[in-house]
């Protein structure tokens, strides 16, 4: 299963390090990553493979929500299918 992790917030050093460390600890594989400034915000989008992950997607969401609170960014974790459904015919 693939998940899309989206990190949005004020840019500062260490965001990628912190988020990717949590993903690595939980055996979540980052398969694609892009970052940019959108609407004045740091925006990072990661496509992640959860095939070998230690956590279910809902649990990973909880963990990353807390990480987001610690570093002051908002983090979303969503099943990739929702984006495919809404934006691809």
């Amino acid at each position: 299963m693939k998940a899309i992790v989206t990190v949005i917030g004020k840019d500062k050093p260490g965001i990628i390090a912190k988020v990717s460390a949590v993903l690595a600890d939980n055996l979540v594989n980052i398969e694609d990553i892009s970052q940019t400034i959108m609407q004045g915000n740091f925006t990072m989008i990661m496509q992640c493979g959860l095939e070998k992950a230690k956590l279910k997607i809902s649990e990973l969401k909880e963990v990353l929500l807390k990480v987001g609170e610690q570093i002051g960014v908002s983090i979303h974790v969503q099943h990739e299918d929702i984006f495919n459904a809404m934006h691809k015919i």
Partner: peptide, 11 residues
């Protein structure tokens, strides 16, 4: 990979 704008649009 999915289009960045589309992901942000959904969120």
């Amino acid at each position: 990979m999915l289009n960045r704008k589309e992901i942000i649009e959904t969120i």
